[in-house]
């Protein structure tokens, strides 16, 4: 199976109390236009609820959004929860307001993308397609 044959499914979640969702609304639209299936869980999720939904929806990728600058803490919890729920193989990408010093921290944790404001849509779509292709081998 190749990424071209199946529709890629992305779960988007905002963990914690950050209410800024203009970014994810726009992102959802862009991804759908690129033929990617998007399930946006809405705001105020927990790490547990995001992973649970990713498993239930058979997501290929978990996308996390945060504008408070605390992505490493959020990602750490989501990764912990993924392992707990035996979903550690689902790749995690992140975007929003991410401090520069946090990018290597996130990369080390296995969180890729780490897109900031102004990122071109093509870069995000390409990244997702590449990750999905890798997943399907």
């Amino acid at each position: 199976m190749s990424a071209n044959q199946v529709k890629i499914r992305v779960i988007i979640g905002k963990v914690g109390l950050d209410p800024h969702d203009r970014g994810v609304i726009v992102l959802s639209h862009i991804l759908r236009e690129a033929g990617i299936e998007v399930i946006y869980l809405g705001r105020f999720q927990t790490a547990e609820s995001v992973v649970k939904a990713a498993i239930e929806e058979d997501a290929d990728i978990i996308a996390l959004s945060d504008h408070c600058g605390v992505m490493p803490e959020i990602a750490e919890d989501v990764i912990k929860e993924s392992k707990k729920q035996n979903a550690g193989d689902i790749p995690i990408i992140a975007g929003g307001f991410i401090e520069e010093k946090d990018i290597p921290v996130l990369e080390n944790m296995g969180v890729s993308g780490n897109f900031g404001p102004g990122t071109s849509h093509k870069a995000i779509v390409d990244h997702i397609q590449k990750l999905a292709a890798k997943r399907y081998g």
Binding site: L17, D18, C68
Partner: peptide
């Protein structure tokens, strides 16, 4: 952001955003 959301700092969902 935590207080803004009308929860106290020790609320389980609030811990990420304290002092942000």
């Amino acid at each position: 952001t935590t207080t803004h959301s009308s929860v106290d700092p020790d609320h389980p969902l609030g811990r990420y955003d304290i002092s942000c």
